[in-house]
């Protein structure tokens, strides 16, 4: 279920990113789930990420599934949108807000692997 939603989001993202491409040339995450985004969507290439060896096999690193606040192993959620689980404000169900879901997922991975941008403006590049 969730995976589907996320997949749909990616499709949507891909569709809208066409505009981004036409203007800026870079693929960005969409910001539709945010009410009033303060920063341009982060530069993000799904292909680059799936093609890197470290995570090529394991979609569930990003497209993870949690049940009762514990990670469900061997399940992924490509068809769900991130905002399905991560609401704008952390709540009882999920303590990680949508912003932090993105920020933490990206940066922690980048730190751990020693690869990829970690500073705000490296992803949220001004258009």
């Amino acid at each position: 279920m969730k995976q589907w939603k996320i997949l749909m989001m990616f499709i949507l993202a891909l569709a809208t990113s066409g505009i981004a491409f036409s203007q800026g040339e870079q693929e960005r995450l969409n910001t539709l789930a945010f009410e009033m985004p303060r920063r341009p969507g982060a530069v993000f290439s799904h292909d680059d990420h799936t093609q890197t060896t470290e995570i090529s096999d394991d979609c569930a690193i990003c497209h993870h599934v949690y049940a009762n606040k514990t990670l469900v192993p061997d399940e992924s959620s490509e068809d769900n949108a991130c905002s399905d689980c991560h609401s704008l404000q952390p709540d009882r169900k999920n303590s990680i807000s949508l912003v932090n879901a993105f920020h933490k997922r990206c940066k922690e991975c980048h730190y751990d692997l020693g690869k990829g941008p970690v500073l705000c403006g490296e992803c949220h590049i001004k258009k």
Partner: peptide, 17 residues
């Protein structure tokens, strides 16, 4: 905003920016 975001990531605290 930027500082609040960083604090929020670390402590889950936030206030209006």
């Amino acid at each position: 905003m930027s500082h609040i975001v960083l604090i929020n990531e670390s402590f889950n605290l936030s206030w209006p920016a």
